[in-house]
Design a protein around this nucleic acid. Sequence first.
RNA 1: GGGCGAUUAGCUCAGUUGGUCAGAGCAGCGGAUUUACAUUCCGCAGGUCCCUGGUUCGAGCCCAGGAUCGCCCACCA
Length: 901
Amino acid sequence: MVELSSRYTPKDVEERLYQQWESQALFHAEPDRRAPYTIVIPPPNVTGILHMGHALNNTIQDICIRFRRMQGANALWVPGTDHAGIATQNVVEKQLAKEGLRRQDLGREQFLQRVWQWKEQYGNTIIRQLKRLGSSCDWQRTRFTMDEGLSEAVAEVFIRLYEKGLIYRGNYIINWCPRCQTALSDEEAPRKETRGKLYYLKYPLVQGSGFKVQGGPRTSNLEPRTHVVVATTRPETMLGDTAVAVHPKDKRYKSLIGKTAILPLVGRELKIIADEAVDPEFGTGAVKVTPAHDPVDFQLGKTHKLEFINVMTDDGRMTNVPKEYEGLDRFECRKRLLATLEGQGMLEKTADHLHAVGHCYRCDTVIEPRLSLQWFVKMKPLAQPAIEAVKKKRITFTPARWTKVYLNWMEHIQDWCISRQIWWGHRIPVYYCQRCPADRVIVSKTPPGKCPKCGSTNLKQDEDVLDTWFSSWLWPFSTLGWPKKSKDLDYFYPTDTLVTAPEIIFFWVARMIMAGLFCMEDVPFRQVYIHGTVRDLTGKKMSKSLGNIIDPLDIIGQFGADALRYTLVTSTAVGTDVFISEEKFVVGRNFANKLWNVTRYVLSTVQGSRFKVQGHPSPFNLEPRTLSVADRWILSRLSHAIAEVTKALDRYAFNEAAQTAYELIWRDFCDWYVEVSKVRSQKSEVQLAVLAHVLETALRLLHPVMPFVTEELWQHVKPAGSPASIMTAPWPKAEKRWLDAEAEEQFALFKAVVTAIRNTKAELNVPLETKPPVQLSTKREAVRRFFEDQRPFLQVLAQVGDVTVGEGLMKPRDASATVVDGIEVIVPLSGLIDAAKERRRIQARVQELTEELGRLDVRLKDRQFTQRAPEDVVNQAKQRREQVTETLQKFTGHLQLLESL
RNA sequence: GGGCGAUUAGCUCAGUUGGUCAGAGCAGCGGAUUUACAUUCCGCAGGUCCCUGGUUCGAGCCCAGGAUCGCCCACCA
């Protein structure tokens, strides 16, 4: 606890607190008698640094967990990182490259040592940043997907799946990244709309295959057909073509079926086959078939027993091709090949073509679909129960629309390629006996001593490692001890809430559900909240390549983590995207500052009184009779706010929760209650109690959103017998007995009258210190009595002199009168304003404005300006012109009024 | 080719089941400085709630159609 200075300095407060929180293990949770509440943190990539997406994600989770913790739940939030196989390996390889080394130079073992070294040194960055953000994770439980226990879980689930026949190895077309030189799952190879070309290639027909065409491509109409034209976006793959396919019902090609074409440049004979898979509408209706490099062609190859010719190496160079192309990069080969074909007149035409091309999600290299021997997980049997679980609402999505997205993906799920040709990761627990046939595999958690079949000790482990997600999908239970039995697992599983971004639904959410049901026979969590994407003000996703990143750590440095959290959370309605700019964080900072200062004020009023703010009894029992209307009003507002914030947090409406707390604290408490309180006798213990109580409660109410400032301030105002930290203080209860419709109505009336008087004074530029007498006229007797009571408050808040309350009061000729809620507010004006002085002031201002208007007019009439200057500059000038005109009119009105006085 | 979301004040956005919902913040403008807070206070917003129909006593809010923008999914080479 520190002395509260006049300036709020989030940096100092936050720095101190977050280190305290960490060392005191305040967020540690063990199974006990309380109801558990568990939240699953998406383990961030170990190479990652905190970006806005993380900041939003973790702020939301932290709000949830702090909210539940205060509600008395045994709240557990297990933090950690995943090993991010490809990304981490890339990082370390880059490091090596600076030393002129490749990973192969070190060898597998040494390379892995380097990666571990790197992990020890840098892998903690994001964890540290999450702490700085205020995340109240159980840091003692921090896990890493390569930890011993989690690794065991990976091997265990591999074996279980294998034994159930759900893991298999086979040659299929997979997504290959030639840069990372590994296979990728479909999810890791997102498709991007790409402007490409569609090349129309002529494949000559073997003599005797030619014939007259009926309505084929126009060029060959009525001529003896000498060739068939195929269209392709990846011409280089033609070197691996082993057939040409057409649709069986396509009249244009009917008589070509069974004939033979010649592959240009190579000279290979290609059978012309018929298959329903061919779309007669696309291209020429004839398609080249490259079974080793395209998923559809692969299928064709299988059905028609074609040859599979792989024409590319692991790094995307050509192989098994004519000499002049051997060893060329795939795109270089494409260029040269097209040039040659064109020279030979074999390139019929080139058309622009928009298509979706897979890109590596780690390095953005264009994916090469390629035939390769890999391990796969059979997904359909795993997906079925996962679909059921969601359909039966054992898991619910918020917003609900994501349910459909999830179900749609699950229903069309493809098998999952899980082997990766990298070194950093969980090595596949499979061994091959060198003496037995190659397809004989031994699946084992630990290296088997000898082949169970032939007894040979010459065994070799599979070289590949597993997809990182193959360990992440076990996170909800592997972090709690699975496959071992544990108290934690019994107590905390299934967990309650998962908070994540939409792009993670397929990668992780869906797979966790499948893994949970498979391994634990229960869902891993009950609610999934999908928040939005963080975007800049133009709606673009924040990304390094666009250069529109706002660094959360930067914001924390400038405005504080509380400000960051507040602004992020108020900028997003349930499940909508978050649009932010740097200025928006000022709002959060100002709010923290406001809290700081109002606390200072409350503490200062108490000083010297018998009332003790810190340690005052709570819940306090006040006699309703002793409360003023303002007291009753603010207590009522407080109760409403508590109910609303609680309800909002229950339904993930974080923006509404934050907004409600903001309105209560700033608009109601600071702007009105505190101001009113200044009028009353400082010795009023009732008032001091209300001030302290409302402030203290509001701090608790806001704590999940702004943990640092609320913790610090709460230490100064907490009631006797409170816990050491606001984090474990009870969540505020909405006291029904404080709900007070009458007080709310009366105080609203009071505010309306004050505002009306302020308006009148402001309109006429009555100096603040001038206190005009005011008459309030109304027929309602109760209202008259009320204002009689409120006279002193009215005088201070509206800065007025005598207040006359009556019925049917006469309005003097030179008085201003406004009616609010049936009350006529009469402010006599004569003698209030030094008319001459005011007239001079206004005239001077009018002159200034007139001159400015003149300048603007000249400018706007200048064609050079209006036509050549940037549009927004011109618009700005126009806008300014309107403003000036408006202001001038206002002043003219004032002048007229002054004349009439 | 499917699916989803958005369209409300100059800007960024709220508006839970249709009836004080036409709002907030920022920007702008006019004013205030012996103040808990200038990271402040007071006052000022007339915006066809994208368009067109429909349901209803009544619609930003429900329905149908359309427009614009954005996102996701899909093996048309």
